[in-house]
Design a protein around this nucleic acid. Structure first.
Length: 260
DNA sequence: CCGGATGTTCACCT
DNA sequence: GAGGTGAACATCCG
């Protein structure tokens, strides 16, 4: 589920807990604590304090502790955020089983009785203290055309692989990458540096439009290409059968007719 | 039963 | 150094 659009919804949901006093930290899954972090470390840093700000860079949700460190939350492919028992996204992944508390990997209880829980069936997400934010490129919602040009310049990697590289551009995941390239009419396998200035501008425009439109529709999985992929497998623009390949290590769908 | 899935990291190749 | 591949994580879905 979570690409940056979903994490942005999680961030908005997390705004509710700002200012509340943290009473308890539940870290039942050591695997979920990244690096050498332990439950006690997190407790020492959080209990008795409160969050002063919520931020997001790409797919990373950041909660700044007042007079303390920053809590970093990652959601992997199936992580969800639940605040006061309420999920940000009504549509549940994993069907009716989306609400199994056995998948609660990390939780915070506040002294007002409320809570913030990270529920992740596949355990691909994680928790960090003071994550290294410098490892992430500019957020895809903020990237300028000039920055995008720089990201693609001098790279022999496939265009899509470059867009997925979080250290260069933060937030674009597999579904969003396919959707924006399909909209922009660009072949995901093109060498990144081969794009003309006009093509980079076109990509930037479609990057913005894709993020805006799929936010309105309700998530990363609501793209035209994604929807079509699950039905008859032809390009919604021109009816050409969609091509399936692996690019940048990820399953990739594209239209061989209009994506060049 | 088998393969694949929205992510990240790491080991190992070329 | 730059990229690619495959594995790992655990679970559900088609």
């Amino acid at each position: 589920m979570p690409e940056m659009l979903e994490v942005e919804l999680y961030r908005q949901l997390a705004t509710r807990v700002l200012g509340r006093v943290i009473a308890r930290v539940d870290a039942p899954d050591q695997w979920f604590l990244k690096g050498r972090l332990t439950g006690d470390h997190v407790r020492d840093a959080l209990v008795g304090r409160s969050f002063g700000a919520d931020r997001r860079i790409g797919k990373l949700l950041l909660l700044d502790v007042v007079d303390g460190p920053t809590l970093g939350l990652r959601f992997g492919m199936t992580g969800r955020l639940i605040v006061d028992g309420e999920a940000a996204i009504a549509r549940l992944e994993y069907g009716a089983a989306a609400g199994r508390s056995a998948w609660d990997r990390f939780g915070i209880a506040f002294d007002d009785g409320g809570s913030l829980v990270l529920r992740d069936p596949r355990r691909l997400g994680g928790v960090e203290l003071d994550p290294d934010e410098s490892r992430l490129g500019p957020d895809a919602l903020e990237v300028t055309p000039a920055q995008l040009r720089g990201i693609l310049a001098r790279s022999a990697a496939p265009l899509k692989a470059r867009l997925l590289d979080q250290s260069r551009l933060a937030g674009v995941g597999n579904l969003l990458a396919d959707e924006m390239l399909w909209r922009a009419g660009l072949d995901p396998a093109r060498v990144a540096s081969s794009l003309t200035p006009a093509e980079v501008r076109r990509l930037h425009r479609h990057l913005r439009d894709t993020l805006d439109e799929l936010t309105d529709r309700g998530g990363s999985h609501t793209g035209d290409l994604q929807v079509m992929r699950s039905t008859d497998g032809v390009c919604p623009k021109d009816g050409e059968p969609l091509q399936q390949r692996t690019i940048g290590g990820r399953t990739t769908y594209s239209c061989p007719r209009h994506q060049r």
